[in-house]
Design a protein around this nucleic acid. Structure first.
Lengths: 136, 136
DNA sequence: CCTTGACCTTCCCATCATGGCAATCCCCAT
DNA sequence: ATGGGGATTGCCATGATGGGAAGGTCAAGG
Protein backbone atom coordinates (compact mmCIF):
# COMPACT_ATOMS: atom_id res chain seq x y z
CA UNK A 1 0.00 0.00 0.00
CA UNK A 2 1.12 3.53 -0.73
CA UNK A 3 0.94 6.38 1.72
CA UNK A 4 -2.28 7.82 0.32
CA UNK A 5 -4.19 4.65 0.86
CA UNK A 6 -2.89 4.31 4.39
CA UNK A 7 -3.71 7.93 5.07
CA UNK A 8 -7.29 7.44 3.95
CA UNK A 9 -7.64 4.23 5.95
CA UNK A 10 -6.15 5.64 9.14
CA UNK A 11 -7.37 9.21 9.11
CA UNK A 12 -3.81 10.50 9.39
CA UNK A 13 -2.73 12.74 6.51
CA UNK A 14 0.16 11.63 4.33
CA UNK A 15 1.96 14.74 5.48
CA UNK A 16 1.65 13.74 9.11
CA UNK A 17 2.59 10.13 8.43
CA UNK A 18 5.88 11.34 6.98
CA UNK A 19 6.29 13.66 9.93
CA UNK A 20 5.67 10.87 12.45
CA UNK A 21 8.25 8.81 10.69
CA UNK A 22 10.72 11.69 10.72
CA UNK A 23 10.44 12.03 14.49
CA UNK A 24 10.61 8.26 14.90
CA UNK A 25 7.15 7.97 16.37
CA UNK A 26 6.67 5.21 13.80
CA UNK A 27 9.52 3.18 12.37
CA UNK A 28 10.79 3.84 8.85
CA UNK A 29 8.82 1.74 6.44
CA UNK A 30 9.96 -0.16 3.36
CA UNK A 31 10.39 1.54 0.02
CA UNK A 32 9.50 0.50 -3.49
CA UNK A 33 12.08 0.53 -6.26
CA UNK A 34 11.03 4.06 -7.06
CA UNK A 35 11.37 5.29 -3.51
CA UNK A 36 7.69 5.15 -2.52
CA UNK A 37 6.89 4.17 1.05
CA UNK A 38 5.26 0.75 1.11
CA UNK A 39 2.95 -0.07 4.01
CA UNK A 40 1.54 -3.28 5.44
CA UNK A 41 -1.86 -3.77 7.04
CA UNK A 42 -0.61 -3.52 10.64
CA UNK A 43 0.79 -0.08 9.91
CA UNK A 44 -2.76 1.13 9.54
CA UNK A 45 -3.56 -0.09 13.04
CA UNK A 46 -0.67 1.85 14.45
CA UNK A 47 -1.67 5.01 12.65
CA UNK A 48 -5.25 4.55 13.72
CA UNK A 49 -4.05 4.28 17.30
CA UNK A 50 -2.02 7.45 16.93
CA UNK A 51 -4.94 9.22 15.34
CA UNK A 52 -7.27 8.26 18.18
CA UNK A 53 -4.74 9.35 20.74
CA UNK A 54 -4.32 12.70 19.00
CA UNK A 55 -8.07 13.14 18.89
CA UNK A 56 -8.27 12.93 22.65
CA UNK A 57 -5.47 15.46 22.79
CA UNK A 58 -2.49 13.35 23.77
CA UNK A 59 0.69 15.16 22.79
CA UNK A 60 2.95 13.24 20.49
CA UNK A 61 5.57 12.59 23.16
CA UNK A 62 3.01 10.93 25.37
CA UNK A 63 1.73 8.94 22.44
CA UNK A 64 5.26 7.66 22.06
CA UNK A 65 4.99 6.12 25.52
CA UNK A 66 1.47 4.89 24.87
CA UNK A 67 2.65 3.11 21.75
CA UNK A 68 5.46 1.45 23.67
CA UNK A 69 2.97 0.16 26.21
CA UNK A 70 0.58 -0.88 23.48
CA UNK A 71 3.28 -2.98 21.87
CA UNK A 72 4.45 -4.37 25.19
CA UNK A 73 2.08 -7.26 25.81
CA UNK A 74 3.39 -7.57 29.36
CA UNK A 75 2.67 -3.97 30.36
CA UNK A 76 0.88 -3.12 33.55
CA UNK A 77 -2.42 -1.40 32.88
CA UNK A 78 -1.51 0.90 35.76
CA UNK A 79 1.17 2.45 33.58
CA UNK A 80 -1.32 3.19 30.86
CA UNK A 81 -3.81 4.54 33.32
CA UNK A 82 -1.29 6.88 34.86
CA UNK A 83 -0.46 8.33 31.45
CA UNK A 84 -4.15 8.82 30.87
CA UNK A 85 -4.61 10.39 34.27
CA UNK A 86 -1.75 12.79 33.63
CA UNK A 87 -3.33 13.80 30.38
CA UNK A 88 -6.74 14.25 31.96
CA UNK A 89 -5.08 16.50 34.51
CA UNK A 90 -3.55 18.50 31.68
CA UNK A 91 -6.92 18.79 30.01
CA UNK A 92 -8.49 19.93 33.26
CA UNK A 93 -5.87 22.60 33.67
CA UNK A 94 -6.39 23.84 30.13
CA UNK A 95 -10.16 23.78 30.55
CA UNK A 96 -9.83 25.67 33.80
CA UNK A 97 -7.63 28.31 32.22
CA UNK A 98 -10.07 28.84 29.38
CA UNK A 99 -13.02 28.95 31.71
CA UNK A 100 -11.30 31.58 33.82
CA UNK A 101 -10.73 33.67 30.70
CA UNK A 102 -14.30 33.16 29.70
CA UNK A 103 -15.59 34.21 33.11
CA UNK A 104 -13.49 37.37 33.18
CA UNK A 105 -14.56 38.41 29.74
CA UNK A 106 -18.18 37.49 30.26
CA UNK A 107 -18.16 39.54 33.42
CA UNK A 108 -17.07 42.59 31.44
CA UNK A 109 -19.28 41.92 28.45
CA UNK A 110 -22.37 41.52 30.58
CA UNK A 111 -22.04 45.13 31.65
CA UNK A 112 -21.50 46.52 28.18
CA UNK A 113 -24.51 48.18 26.60
CA UNK A 114 -23.56 47.03 23.15
CA UNK A 115 -25.18 50.00 21.45
CA UNK A 116 -24.07 53.18 19.71
CA UNK A 117 -22.70 54.79 22.83
CA UNK A 118 -18.94 54.77 23.24
CA UNK A 119 -18.64 53.97 26.93
CA UNK A 120 -17.65 50.37 27.34
CA UNK A 121 -16.83 48.38 30.46
CA UNK A 122 -14.94 45.89 28.35
CA UNK A 123 -12.37 48.44 27.22
CA UNK A 124 -12.34 49.99 30.68
CA UNK A 125 -11.76 46.65 32.27
CA UNK A 126 -8.90 45.78 29.96
CA UNK A 127 -7.32 49.18 30.50
CA UNK A 128 -7.72 48.97 34.26
CA UNK A 129 -4.40 48.46 36.03
CA UNK A 130 -6.23 46.28 38.57
CA UNK A 131 -5.83 42.66 37.53
CA UNK A 132 -8.70 40.81 35.98
CA UNK A 133 -9.91 37.55 37.36
CA UNK A 134 -11.26 37.94 40.83
CA UNK A 135 -14.60 39.60 40.45
CA UNK A 136 -14.94 40.32 44.13
CA UNK B 1 11.79 55.17 30.48
CA UNK B 2 13.67 52.24 29.06
CA UNK B 3 12.07 49.02 27.93
CA UNK B 4 12.87 47.10 31.10
CA UNK B 5 11.05 49.55 33.28
CA UNK B 6 8.03 49.56 30.99
CA UNK B 7 8.08 45.77 30.91
CA UNK B 8 8.03 45.58 34.69
CA UNK B 9 5.27 48.17 34.92
CA UNK B 10 3.06 46.60 32.26
CA UNK B 11 3.65 42.92 32.80
CA UNK B 12 4.69 42.50 29.16
CA UNK B 13 8.22 41.18 28.69
CA UNK B 14 10.75 43.34 26.88
CA UNK B 15 10.94 40.65 24.26
CA UNK B 16 7.24 40.83 23.59
CA UNK B 17 7.22 44.62 23.58
CA UNK B 18 9.75 44.54 20.75
CA UNK B 19 7.71 41.88 19.03
CA UNK B 20 4.50 43.90 19.30
CA UNK B 21 6.35 46.82 17.82
CA UNK B 22 7.70 44.67 15.00
CA UNK B 23 4.21 43.57 14.00
CA UNK B 24 2.93 47.14 14.38
CA UNK B 25 0.55 46.30 17.17
CA UNK B 26 2.11 49.27 18.91
CA UNK B 27 3.72 52.16 17.07
CA UNK B 28 7.49 52.50 16.92
CA UNK B 29 8.64 54.48 19.88
CA UNK B 30 11.34 57.14 20.13
CA UNK B 31 14.98 56.24 20.50
CA UNK B 32 17.73 57.67 22.61
CA UNK B 33 21.01 58.79 21.07
CA UNK B 34 22.37 55.32 21.68
CA UNK B 35 19.44 53.59 20.05
CA UNK B 36 17.49 52.63 23.19
CA UNK B 37 13.74 52.71 22.97
CA UNK B 38 12.38 55.56 25.08
CA UNK B 39 8.86 55.21 26.45
CA UNK B 40 6.34 57.65 27.86
CA UNK B 41 3.82 56.99 30.59
CA UNK B 42 0.87 56.39 28.23
CA UNK B 43 2.79 53.60 26.56
CA UNK B 44 2.48 51.66 29.79
CA UNK B 45 -1.29 51.98 29.62
CA UNK B 46 -1.32 50.57 26.12
CA UNK B 47 0.86 47.65 27.08
CA UNK B 48 -1.22 47.02 30.14
CA UNK B 49 -4.28 46.92 27.93
CA UNK B 50 -2.61 44.46 25.62
CA UNK B 51 -1.49 42.36 28.52
CA UNK B 52 -4.99 42.18 29.96
CA UNK B 53 -6.42 41.29 26.59
CA UNK B 54 -3.86 38.52 26.19
CA UNK B 55 -4.67 37.21 29.62
CA UNK B 56 -8.28 36.67 28.65
CA UNK B 57 -7.03 34.91 25.56
CA UNK B 58 -7.63 37.47 22.83
CA UNK B 59 -5.39 36.68 19.89
CA UNK B 60 -3.11 39.48 18.84
CA UNK B 61 -5.03 40.26 15.67
CA UNK B 62 -8.20 40.81 17.62
CA UNK B 63 -6.31 42.94 20.09
CA UNK B 64 -5.32 45.09 17.15
CA UNK B 65 -8.98 45.84 16.54
CA UNK B 66 -9.65 46.29 20.25
CA UNK B 67 -6.86 48.83 20.46
CA UNK B 68 -8.28 50.74 17.52
CA UNK B 69 -11.65 50.91 19.23
CA UNK B 70 -10.02 51.83 22.52
CA UNK B 71 -8.30 54.77 20.90
CA UNK B 72 -11.40 55.76 18.97
CA UNK B 73 -13.33 57.83 21.46
CA UNK B 74 -16.33 57.82 19.16
CA UNK B 75 -16.58 54.04 18.88
CA UNK B 76 -19.84 52.21 19.36
CA UNK B 77 -19.70 49.88 22.35
CA UNK B 78 -21.57 47.38 20.19
CA UNK B 79 -18.42 46.95 18.11
CA UNK B 80 -16.39 46.14 21.19
CA UNK B 81 -19.04 43.82 22.49
CA UNK B 82 -19.19 41.90 19.24
CA UNK B 83 -15.44 41.34 19.31
CA UNK B 84 -15.79 40.10 22.85
CA UNK B 85 -18.71 37.88 21.92
CA UNK B 86 -16.74 36.39 19.06
CA UNK B 87 -13.90 35.64 21.41
CA UNK B 88 -16.21 34.12 24.00
CA UNK B 89 -17.58 31.92 21.24
CA UNK B 90 -14.02 30.86 20.39
CA UNK B 91 -13.35 30.08 24.01
CA UNK B 92 -16.55 28.05 24.23
CA UNK B 93 -15.55 26.06 21.22
CA UNK B 94 -12.12 25.37 22.64
CA UNK B 95 -13.58 24.46 26.01
CA UNK B 96 -16.07 22.17 24.35
CA UNK B 97 -13.37 20.45 22.34
CA UNK B 98 -11.28 19.85 25.43
CA UNK B 99 -14.24 18.63 27.41
CA UNK B 100 -15.11 16.17 24.68
CA UNK B 101 -11.57 14.85 24.77
CA UNK B 102 -11.74 14.64 28.51
CA UNK B 103 -15.01 12.74 28.43
CA UNK B 104 -13.76 10.21 25.90
CA UNK B 105 -10.61 9.56 27.80
CA UNK B 106 -12.30 9.46 31.17
CA UNK B 107 -14.74 6.95 29.77
CA UNK B 108 -11.89 4.65 28.83
CA UNK B 109 -9.88 5.26 31.98
CA UNK B 110 -12.80 4.52 34.23
CA UNK B 111 -12.85 0.97 32.91
CA UNK B 112 -9.14 0.36 33.28
CA UNK B 113 -8.12 -1.68 36.28
CA UNK B 114 -4.91 0.23 36.71
CA UNK B 115 -3.06 -2.69 38.24
CA UNK B 116 -0.37 -5.16 37.21
CA UNK B 117 -2.50 -6.89 34.64
CA UNK B 118 -1.86 -6.01 31.00
CA UNK B 119 -5.39 -5.82 29.69
CA UNK B 120 -6.37 -2.22 29.28
CA UNK B 121 -9.52 -0.66 27.87
CA UNK B 122 -7.63 2.56 27.25
CA UNK B 123 -5.26 0.94 24.77
CA UNK B 124 -8.09 -1.13 23.35
CA UNK B 125 -10.24 1.93 22.91
CA UNK B 126 -7.49 3.86 21.14
CA UNK B 127 -6.74 0.92 18.88
CA UNK B 128 -10.40 0.39 18.08
CA UNK B 129 -11.25 1.41 14.53
CA UNK B 130 -14.63 2.60 15.80
CA UNK B 131 -14.43 6.32 16.43
CA UNK B 132 -14.21 7.62 19.96
CA UNK B 133 -16.59 10.19 21.25
CA UNK B 134 -20.12 8.92 21.38
CA UNK B 135 -20.28 6.62 24.34
CA UNK B 136 -23.58 5.13 23.25
C1' DC C 1 6.28 2.62 -26.95
C1' DC C 2 4.91 6.95 -25.25
C1' DT C 3 1.91 10.11 -23.02
C1' DT C 4 -0.94 11.61 -19.44
C1' DG C 5 -2.52 12.31 -15.04
C1' DA C 6 -2.60 10.85 -10.42
C1' DC C 7 0.34 10.03 -6.90
C1' DC C 8 4.69 10.23 -4.49
C1' DT C 9 9.28 12.39 -3.00
C1' DT C 10 11.93 16.03 -0.48
C1' DC C 11 12.49 20.67 1.03
C1' DC C 12 11.17 25.11 2.50
C1' DC C 13 7.87 28.22 4.56
C1' DA C 14 4.02 29.63 7.69
C1' DT C 15 1.27 29.34 11.64
C1' DC C 16 0.98 31.72 17.02
C1' DA C 17 3.10 33.81 20.84
C1' DT C 18 6.81 33.19 23.43
C1' DG C 19 11.47 32.18 25.33
C1' DG C 20 16.53 31.56 24.95
C1' DC C 21 21.01 32.59 23.49
C1' DA C 22 24.83 35.20 21.51
C1' DA C 23 27.47 39.02 20.01
C1' DT C 24 27.68 43.63 20.43
C1' DC C 25 26.68 48.03 22.25
C1' DC C 26 25.10 51.78 25.64
C1' DC C 27 24.89 54.09 30.01
C1' DC C 28 25.86 55.29 34.56
C1' DA C 29 28.38 55.12 38.75
C1' DT C 30 32.63 54.47 40.77
C1' DA D 1 38.40 54.60 32.26
C1' DT D 2 36.33 50.60 33.73
C1' DG D 3 32.88 47.45 35.17
C1' DG D 4 28.39 45.76 35.37
C1' DG D 5 23.71 45.92 34.25
C1' DG D 6 20.75 46.66 30.71
C1' DA D 7 19.50 47.18 25.50
C1' DT D 8 20.07 46.01 20.62
C1' DT D 9 19.45 42.81 16.80
C1' DG D 10 19.23 38.33 14.96
C1' DC D 11 18.73 33.50 14.86
C1' DC D 12 16.69 29.28 16.66
C1' DA D 13 13.08 26.52 19.00
C1' DT D 14 8.62 25.33 20.44
C1' DG D 15 3.95 21.73 18.58
C1' DA D 16 1.41 19.89 15.18
C1' DT D 17 -0.16 20.92 11.07
C1' DG D 18 -0.93 22.68 6.29
C1' DG D 19 0.65 24.70 1.77
C1' DG D 20 3.30 24.78 -2.13
C1' DA D 21 7.15 24.00 -5.43
C1' DA D 22 10.13 21.13 -8.16
C1' DG D 23 10.80 16.88 -9.62
C1' DG D 24 10.32 11.59 -9.87
C1' DT D 25 7.11 7.25 -10.31
C1' DC D 26 3.55 4.42 -11.69
C1' DA D 27 -0.27 2.55 -14.20
C1' DA D 28 -3.65 2.92 -17.74
C1' DG D 29 -4.74 3.78 -22.31
C1' DG D 30 -3.65 5.36 -27.07
Amino acid sequence: MNIGEVAAASGVSAKMIRYYESIALIPPVGRSAGGYRVYQAPDIDTLRFIHSARRVGFPVERIRRLLALWRDKGRASADVKSLAAAHIADLDRQIGDLQAMRRSLEHLAARCHGDDRPDCPILDGLADPVPLGRVG
